[in-house]
Every structure is written in structure tokens, then in C-alpha cells.
Design a protein around this nucleic acid. Structure first.
Lengths: 124, 124
DNA sequence: GTAATACTTGGAGTTAACTCAAAGTCAAGA
DNA sequence: TCTTGACTTTGAGTTAACTCCAAGTATTAC
């Protein structure tokens, strides 16, 4: 697949795909003899992983570290595990905060709905 | 409360507090005759709301709009409701994405744990 | 009253994560 | 072969959300 096809498949710009590769957030993509990107399944797997992590707010920097560790071989498996566990912890906290905010939003929304319903506000 | 006290209470910098006020993410804070901020309960409520929304990733711009609507009076209640509902929807989607990513992280973590446990990787 | 400290503003600087532009190279069709 | 359009890189520009700085004013301690 060309960069254009991949960008369409994942709804992400070509610039972003090239950027991810340039900064090392995904390993070097397979190229044709002419130097043009030709994404293979393993390249697509990396792209998908990168997009998934980014869409949850995981920093680019963290993915760069992970990719770096993967390149260094199996000896880095404990380090990779630790990195992933740390990120999971961060996402759990993020989730809790999200729920707290959702509760607050729901509370306010109910207030407004009632206000519109009864025609008056009885604010706290 | 002074800006310093508020910054300590909510673990946020004074600069950020002033920034929030300057851009209109919270209404103008009560001042002393000398022009120094003196946060009252209602000011603190706004600060707390702003921090809560921001910590869930809700854009500053959205809070600015909300504050603006509040200033314009009760006629904007339907608009405020709509704004809040839209943000709730966005947070719900964000939450789903977070869960998807967490699933993926958990899968990888289990793989690595097993690899360390058995001393070998049986990758997919 | 004066020194020290905390506050004020306006505006410039920073960071993360893209996003765009320019100038050149590659590949497919007439 | 020539043209057209997609691809390449390097490097600069943009956006959101702060973050910092300088110069000045207010408050508090002595």
C-alpha cells in the first residue's frame, strides 16, 4: 500500500504518517527500490498501534521509546513491560477523571433540562 | 483568597489562573479596591469547574463559549444545554476510545508477562 | 516612611503534535 | 520520450494551552 492508501484506510493525513515515521513513533516503513513507501502488513500493524495509542492521548514520546526498545531486541522485554504498565496506569487515572467530569456534566445537564421544563431555574 | 492561595488549593499555577480569567474561561474574579484578585466562593466554583473540564480534555475554547452564554442571561439556557450535551457526547466517545486502547494495552502486557514467565515469546 | 514581598499587566516564549511549502524524484499512460 | 500526478525530503509554520518575563503597583512588616 502507498502512503495515500494508508492515509485513506486510517483517515489520517499523509503528512502525519510520514511524521510518525520520521520521529520514530513507528519503525522505518518498507520502501520500493525507488525509495517510495510500500506499507506491508507489519508496517500497517505499527501504524494501527500508533493511531490507537495516540487517540487515547498517549504521548508520541512514549511510543518512540517503545519502538526504540523493540528495535533493541528481546533483552528489553522487561523494560517494555514496565513502560506499558505505566501507560495503563496513566490511562486508568485519565478514565477516572473522565468519569468525574461526566458526572458533573450530567448534573448540570439535568439542571438545565429541568429549568427548561419548568420554565424556571432553581439554582444551588 | 489570593491568587497564590487558590493556586495552592487547586495545585495549579498562578499564571494559569490568570490566563483562564484573561481568555474568559472563567468570569472576571472579584478584586480588592487596589485591583488585586480576591477570590470569593463563586469565583472558586468557576475555577473548580474550569479545572474539572480541562482535566478531562475539554477545550478551553468550549469553556469560553459557555461562560459567555452564562453572562448573556437566562435566554441562553437552551444553547448552554446543547453545548453541554455535545461535550458529554464527546467525552463518551473519548471514553470508548480509552477503553479500546486499554484492552489493547492489557493484551500486550499479558503477552509480555507470559514471555518473561516462560522465558520465550510466542508472538502472533 | 521604607524595605521587602506579593501582586498587577502586556506581551513574548515554549511545548507537543502536527501541517504546510518548496524543490526535486519516481512511475504510469499517450 | 514526454507529461502528469504522486511521491520524496528538509525545514519552516501553525495551533492549543500554557509559561515566563519585565516593568510597574499594592500590601505588609518594621
Amino acid at each position: 500500500m502507498t502512503v495515500k492508501e494508508v492515509s485513506e484506510k486510517y483517515k489520517i493525513t499523509q503528512d502525519t504518517l510520514r511524521y510518525y515515521e520520521r520521529v520514530g513513533m513507528i519503525p522505518e516503513v518498507t520502501r520500493t527500490s525507488g525509495g517510495i513507501r510500500s506499507y506491508q502488513q507489519k508496517d500497517l500493524d505499527w501504524v494501527e498501534l500508533a493511531i490507537c495509542m495516540r487517540s487515547a492521548g498517549l504521548p508520541v514520546e512514549v511510543m518512540i521509546q517503545y519502538v526504540q526498545l523493540c528495535k533493541e531486541g528481546e533483552s528489553t522485554i522487561p523494560a517494555r513491560l514496565e513502560l506499558l504498565q505505566k501507560q495503563r496506569e496513566a490511562l486508568h487515572m485519565q478514565r477516572e477523571q473522565l468519569d468525574t467530569t461526566l458526572d458533573r456534566l450530567n448534573y448540570k445537564i439535568k439542571k438545565y433540562e429541568k429549568a427548561i421544563d419548568t420554565g424556571k431555574l432553581n439554582w444551588d
